[in-house]
Simulated scan of single mutants.
Amino acid sequence: MKISGAAAIVTGGGSGLGRATAEALAERGARVAVADLNQAAAEAVAKAIGGVAVACDVGGEASAAEAFAKAEAAHGPARILVNCAGVGSPVRIVGKDGAPTPLGDFEKVIRVNLIGTFNMIRLAAAGMATLEPIEGERGVIVSTASVAAFEGQVGQSAYSASKGGVAAMTLPIARELARNAIRVNTIAPGIFMTPMLAGLREDFQASLGASVPFPSRLGAPSEYAALAVHIVENGYINGETIRIDGALRMAPR
C-alpha cells in the first residue's frame, strides 16, 4: 500500500517502538494519529511529526472508539493501523511468600496486550472495509507480539500468553479480512531499546545485547519501524508473524 497521503493510527505512539513507527510513517507522507494512554507523550510526538494526538486506552471499548472518531475527524478514515501499545509487567504464579499471584495482575496484561490489540483491529477493520480499494487494497494492520510468544522466560507467563495470543490470531484474522482486501500481519521483536530498558544500568544493557547472536546489541526502534513500513508497502506479505531479533532465542531466565 502506498503510504503517502494515507491516514494511519499508531497505538503506543508516544514512546519506543510506537514513536519510531509514527515518525517513519509521517516521513513517508502519512497523516498519523498518535494514540497513547499518556496524553502528554502523544501530544509531543504529534507536534513533532505534524500529526494529531488521541488519548486512548486500547483495552477500553468506549475509549478506543473515541480515539478512532477523533483520528477520522482530523485525517479521514484510517487505512493503516500499527498496534504498539503494550505492558510488560512480570507475573509469577506463586510469589516469594508462597501465595498465589493476584489474578488481577494476569488480567491486566491480557487486557492491554491481547484484548487491546483485538479491540483496535476490530474497529480499524470495520472502517477500512467501507473504503474504496487503492491499488487493490483497502487497509493494512500491523500488530506487535514478542519473541516471548515462543520462548517465554520465568515470570513471563502473562506476557507470553498475551503475545502468543496476538501471534495466534494473526492468521485467522488475515483470512477473515482477505475478502475485504485488508492485510493483517504481526511483528515479534526481540530485545529492543525501549524506554523501559533505557532506564537500566549501561552494564546490564550491554549484557542483554551480548545475548543476541548477531548483531550483538539491543534492537533500535527505527529497525522495528522500518519493518512495519515494509510490511505496509509490500502487498504480498499477509497473515505472517515476523521475528526481528538478531537470531535471539530466549533462555529460561
Rank of each mutant, 00 (worst) to 15 (best):
1 M>W: 04
2 K>L: 14
3 I>F: 08
5 G>T: 05
10 V>A: 06
19 R>M: 14
21 T>F: 09
24 A>V: 05
25 L>V: 00
33 A>P: 08
38 N>H: 12
38 N>K: 08
47 K>Q: 15
48 A>T: 14
51 G>C: 05
57 D>K: 13
62 A>W: 02
63 S>I: 00
63 S>C: 03
72 E>F: 01
72 E>A: 09
90 P>S: 07
95 G>E: 15
95 G>I: 07
100 P>Q: 09
100 P>T: 06
102 P>G: 12
113 N>P: 08
114 L>H: 12
120 M>K: 00
121 I>Q: 05
121 I>C: 14
122 R>D: 02
123 L>G: 02
123 L>I: 13
124 A>N: 05
127 G>Q: 07
129 A>V: 04
134 I>A: 12
135 E>Q: 13
137 E>H: 11
138 R>C: 06
141 I>P: 10
144 T>R: 04
145 A>K: 05
150 F>W: 11
155 G>Y: 08
155 G>L: 10
155 G>N: 12
165 G>S: 06
171 L>I: 03
174 A>V: 12
175 R>W: 03
179 R>N: 08
182 I>R: 01
182 I>M: 03
185 N>P: 09
189 P>G: 14
189 P>L: 13
191 I>V: 14
196 M>V: 14
197 L>Y: 11
201 R>E: 15
205 Q>H: 07
208 L>V: 10
217 R>M: 02
218 L>I: 02
218 L>M: 10
219 G>A: 08
221 P>H: 12
226 A>W: 09
230 H>W: 11
239 G>M: 11
248 L>W: 06
251 A>M: 09
